[in-house]
Nucleic acid binder design. Sequence first.
DNA 1: AATGCAGTTGAAAATCACTTGCAATTAGTT
DNA 2: AACTAATTGCAAGTGATTTTCAACTGCATT
Lengths: 141, 141
Amino acid sequence: MSKATALHHDYETLLREAGVRITKQRQAILKIIADAADHPDAMEIYNRASALDASVSLPTVYRTMKTLEENGAIRRHTFEGGPSRFEHADSEHHDHLIDVDTGSVIEFTSPKIEALQREIAEELGYDIIHHRLEIYGKRRR
Amino acid sequence: MSKATALHHDYETLLREAGVRITKQRQAILKIIADAADHPDAMEIYNRASALDASVSLPTVYRTMKTLEENGAIRRHTFEGGPSRFEHADSEHHDHLIDVDTGSVIEFTSPKIEALQREIAEELGYDIIHHRLEIYGKRRR
DNA sequence: AATGCAGTTGAAAATCACTTGCAATTAGTT
DNA sequence: AACTAATTGCAAGTGATTTTCAACTGCATT
């Protein structure tokens, strides 16, 4: 009994339960998202999904990303300069280290930093809605 | 002998020394930037500078921002959704708390968070080029 | 002060990342 | 199978920013 990944990413069921119709275009996009181990942008998702179903269009990718985001299934990130990039939302919160040379993204978490942020917001009289911490770095050699 | 602000923001001299010509359009833009206590975007800078010199155009605002950024005089921030916003680069590094209701920006620093970030990058084998930490919050009432 | 010319300008067009309008199509109920 | 509202692709529209290009202008040099 294999268990390739810890999570199933059953976006189809999730969307269906939210009253969203599962079209063949969305099936292709959903599969790409579910299988993605990286943080692809819309164009990249469009390219990958087109290979599964040539009828997928870029507007549909954007519309599907929006729907998934509204249903809490994915998270959107806008790193410096570039277009929005997406990732599953089911993992616990984490921040990102972006390799400025390759654009690849490494995830990390720091409970200490999280706690310090809450302290800071507290002192300034604010409730945190969300935050983003991005470290842009170069691999040491 | 008055000393209104701690820093002079003498962008004109800085640019001149970098071999950049000081046109009347740039003088107007530079004055707006030097006097700005907030984080205006290009359109806002254009509006303010137009009052000083009607011949300033939006492309020139963008070109001047780019030149200032390349010379390390200003910093560009792209907060969620909105356009780039600019601020002087001479102050010490700080992070931002953005009021999601008003769009206003509060600056803060946390040496502890900075230190933790260095530790994290270190562990991952990276040298930090720069980073950004933004907290999006609502004022507590 | 006049000259020369590379740097700079504004206007218009181009680009980039999305978003929207709309007529045709289709998923999913009845 | 019939129905109908959700969804689609295409084309056009946005908003932010950049580029093209011919005209103009700092400013170093006569």
